[in-house]
Write a protein that binds this DNA or RNA. Structure first.
Length: 865
RNA sequence: GCCCCAGUGGCGAAAUGGUAGACGCGGCAGACUCAAAAUCUGUUGCCCGCAAGGGCGUGCUGGUUCGAGUCCGGCCUGGGGCACCA
């Protein structure tokens, strides 16, 4: 019995594909194109199972589409700027650039060992000046077009390290390295006007019909368009009028306080003469900038002593608070509180003993008996205790309240977005330099185009806290392009989301040295037809990319409304967790699982098996793809990734699963190499007719060709693999029957043998997208010398796809009582008669006459008695 | 706190509103073997029953329908995102 030599086969075909440039593509307007893209990896060091899953999904689609005759663009690159490179520099003294490029080299080799059908000639890395130079140009073009501007905003500040912290680096309000309480600080930073496109980005979501519904909903909520009212309160104590925004103007008569953000200008003014208030604001600023942290924090307020006059009721004064849950970034940074109908306001009111007056009462409830306890009422209802709004429904009351405010000249009904402008400044080294020069005389001046790119200096040190660019001895010193005087460079770098907002465009024309990309090439290849990645990018990366594409269209780079026509979000790869007797996490490779018992391989002490969760280094529940590929081969890893779990759900990695994948590979190999009788030569003409066995073999093969393809198109890979197994199981049984006859001296009939070869060839072709190396090696075993990747997808003969009989279920009152074998598409009355004649059905009917009979052709007959 | 998603045998799962559990893992029984591994065959949702057969069953709960895993309402549990991780 010959054994499939995985290592030899996989290495051989990978080098053949590379030598022949099998996957290099050129734009060709005469051919239909498709663009398959997986979210490019951050070069963290080694590939992980999430990458294997991501790139296998894309590769299966790319290979299938290619077989279907498409010109397939399937590129790969590196999202190479980012925080981990600087952490490596801090922890190990490695230069971020060296660390990054070494990681890229390792990971490229690992990805290539997966046998991906990628055009490597298009590879890019975002940390290279020949990539980021164009992004500097784009930024300057945005600046010219008024889409970029500078303003003050808040950052997390570590007072010990004197460093800006990412939200990720703030743990329980403290800096991750120093443990110091984090403060908020204001810095002058660059922003991009994503809000300029808020309405467009929202409206176009409906055109993205090949996106998951949940991602569209998340983006819709993120953009957060709401209709509401902006209006002014007159304040006591001679302060200027205070503008607030509300989405619930209908509840104005339920107001019991007014609250402003700790970062509101009025709060700062009031704090000048009030040390207690200043201390309260300082306390509020001793928390991270993360919205989740702010929302989860206990609601706290500070009574300022001033009051706001209710706009409708003369003499009704509301106390004004500074409150920690009011965000300066949303609306006007000031609100009025209606505790009965907003949970946060209610929590606040209960804490400070403010009135809770319901003004919306559910229809049909007695207003007198309606009160609010610990839960605010946010549902529909009719207005009460609300003067001119009494009796109106919520929507009508909103309109009436807005109209009244407008007629009083105290405000206007407006549309508000939750979406905020995109802050792109980062106080870090390993990013794209922002091409700006600060001149004491001329202000912020763009770097002239001829001087681009502004490159990062190599000689930086990480021995002191803060941004190495800012303390570099020479780099920032330059002259002003306007006046020629001494000036300094901007030392902030761009948010790394910028690089990932246009790399999919660069792939269309990755070696262009003049411009970011050629318009015509982008027109041919874009949009991305299948974009595949993790659900964690559902909002930020995808929304920024949509914005960037629109902004580029706005300044004339291209004419493309949406970058990603089709999107697929995959689930995570999970694994069981293990802990030793001391509670320390243990790698799966160090655990011996036998007879339901888990023990440590070294020493045999018992190990506790914990929950199955996302693979993560900190919990050590990781399996290294490279060792799996070395042991079982890339095809087994790819098959496992595609089997069992649907791709949008989490996938649990198990030893048993990869073993099963390997067994299936062995089974296919035996099927092809040991059919048990001699196959006709490749290319033998088809016989004139086929007998029963031959037809059965052909049915299985042609059904697989049709079904597997359909499933791949719809991302139903687990179902595609099931269909491959059904096909190979049926084929195996047929071959075994023919082989048994051959062993008795009866060589298979010409039609049977021909059908067997056809089916084995179909098997190679249908298995190829998932297991390309095995498929190609089997193809060679069948006597072919060409490359399977150059063959088109096998044709499914529609005559072989339909059965002559249908199994029809018969229900009595919805309960299954019998099944009938009826001719396909039998007439309704024939099906009805057959059903009523069935003894089991008659027994269930118990002599009662049928009241109604529902017939669904080829499926079901339901008798109602 | 707010937004989004998922939940089906021992396990991963399948099922245009129409036979719930395809396909696979694991288990059990058998064949081959001195034995083991590998491989092959059969069987496998739960309960009652010798069997024929019957009953129950898709997180919980209520509804729509001739018919609900699928549609609608309310809950429970688990996961993702929340703007400086990528």
């Amino acid at each position: 019995m010959s054994r499939y030599n995985v290592r030899e086969s996989e290495a051989k075909w990978q080098s053949v594909w590379a030598e022949r440039n099998s996957f290099a593509v050129q734009a060709d307007p005469s051919k239909p194109k498709t663009y398959v893209l997986e979210m490019f990896p951050y070069p963290s060091g080694r590939i992980h199972m999430g990458h294997v899953r991501n790139y296998t999904i894309g590769d299966v689609i790319a290979r299938y589409k290619r077989a279907k005759g498409f010109n397939v663009l399937h590129p790969m690159g590196w999202d190479a700027f980012g925080l981990p490179a600087e952490n490596a520099a801090l922890e190990r003294g490695v230069h971020p650039g060296k660390w990054t490029y070494e990681n890229i080299a390792t990971m490229r080799g690992q990805l290539q060992s997966m046998g991906l059908a990628i055009d490597w000639s298009r590879e890019l890395a975002t940390c290279r000046p020949d990539y980021y130079r164009f992004e500097q140009k784009m930024f300057l073009d945005f600046l010219k077009a008024g889409l970029a501007y500078r303003k003050e905003s808040w950052v997390n500040w570590d007072p010990v390290d004197n460093t800006v912290l990412a939200n990720e680096q703030v743990i329980d309000g403290r800096g991750w390295r120093t443990g110091a309480l984090v403060e908020k600080r204001k810095l002058s930073q660059w922003f991009l006007k994503i809000t300029h496109f808020a309405d467009e980005l929202l409206g176009a979501l409906t055109s993205l019909d090949r996106w998951p519904e949940k991602v569209r909903i998340m983006q819709e909520n993120w953009i957060g368009k709401s209709q509401g009212l902006r209006f002014f309160f007159s304040l006591s104590g001679g302060h200027a009028d205070l503008e607030v925004f509300t989405t619930r103007p209908d509840t104005l008569f339920g107001a019991s306080f007014v609250a402003i953000s700790p970062n509101h200008p009025l709060a700062a003014t009031l704090a000048e003469g009030n040390a207690d208030l200043a201390a309260f604001i300082a306390e509020c600023n001793r928390s991270s900038t993360s919205e989740a942290d702010i929302e989860k924090a206990e609601k706290k307020g500070f009574a300022t002593g001033i009051t706001a006059a209710h706009p409708f009721v003369p003499g009704w004064d509301l106390p004004v608070y500074v409150a920690n849950f009011v965000l300066m970034e949303y609306g006007t940074g000031a609100i009025f509180g209606c505790p009965a109908h907003d949970q946060r306001d209610l929590d606040f009111a209960r804490k400070y003993g403010l009135p809770v007056k319901p003004v919306v009462v559910p229809e049909g409830q007695d207003p007198a008996g309606f009160s609010v306890g610990d839960e605010a009422y946010t549902g529909p209802g009719l207005l009460r205790n609300s003067d001119f709004l009494d009796g109106m429904a919520v929507e009508a009351a909103k309109t009436a309240a807005i109209a009244r405010i407008e007629s009083l000249g105290r405000g206007t009904g407006t549309t508000m977005f939750r979406l905020r402008d995109w802050g792109v400044s980062r106080q870090r080294y390993w990013g794209c330099p922002i091409p700006i020069i600060h001149c004491p005389a001329c202000g912020a001046v763009p770097v002239p185009e001829a001087q681009l790119p502004v490159t990062l200096p190599e000689d930086v040190t990480f021995d002191a806290p803060g941004n190495p660019l800012a303390r570099h001895p020479t780099w920032k010193h330059t002259t002003c392009p306007h006046c020629g005087g001494a000036a300094v460079r901007e030392t902030d770098t761009f948010d790394t989301f910028i690089e990932s907002s246009w790399y999919f465009l660069r792939f269309a024309d990755p070696r262009n040295e003049q411009v970011a990309f050629d318009k015509e090439l982008v027109k041919y290849w874009l949009p991305v037809d299948n974009y595949i990645g993790g659900i964690e990018h559902a909002v930020l990366h995808l929304l920024y990319s949509r914005f960037w594409t629109r902004a580029l269209s706005h300044v004339g780079y291209l004419d493309l409304p949406e970058p990603f026509g089709g999107l697929f979000t995959q689930g995570m790869v999970t694994h069981a967790t293990f802990q030793d007797a001391d509670g320390k996490w243990v790698f799966p490779t160090d655990v011996d699982l036998q007879g339901g018992k888990a023990t440590l391989k070294a020493g045999g002490t018992p190990v506790t098996v914990g929950p199955v969760i996302k693979m993560s280094k900190s919990k050590k529940n990781v399996v290294d793809p490279q060792s799996i590929i070395e042991t079982y081969g890339a095809d087994a890893a790819r098959l496992f990734m595609m089997s069992d779990s649907p791709p949008d759900r989490d996938l649990e990695w198990t030893e048993a699963g990869i073993d099963g994948a390997w067994r299936y590979i062995s089974r296919l190999w035996r099927l092809v190499t040991e059919p048990g009788f001699t196959l006709p030569a490749a290319g033998t003409p088809a016989p004139a007719s086929f007998g029963a066995e031959a037809t059965a073999i052909r049915r299985a093969a042609h059904k697989a060709a049709a079904g597997v393809g359909d499933d791949i198109e719809q991302y139903r890979f687990n179902s595609a693999v099931a269909k491959l197994r059904i096909f190979s199981n049926a084929l195996g049984e047929s071959l075994a029957r023919l082989a048994a006859k051959a062993a008795e001296g009866a060589a298979p009939a010409a039609d049977d043998a021909w059908a067997a070869r056809e089916a084995l060839e179909y098997l190679c072709q249908t298995v190829q997208p998932v297991m390309p190396h095995l498929a190609q090696q089997m193809w060679v075993e069948l006597g072919h010398s060409d490359l399977l990747v150059d063959r088109s997808w096998p044709v499914a003969d529609s005559a072989l796809l339909v059965e002559d009989t249908a199994t029809v279920a018969v229900q009595v009152n919805g309960k299954l009582r019998a099944t009938l074998a009826l001719p396909r598409d039998a007439a309704e009355d024939v099906a009805k008669a057959a059903a009523l004649a069935d003894p089991a059905v008659q027994k269930a009917m118990d002599g009662k006459p049928p009241r109604k009979v529902i017939v669904v052709p080829n499926r079901i007959v339901n008798v109602v008695v």
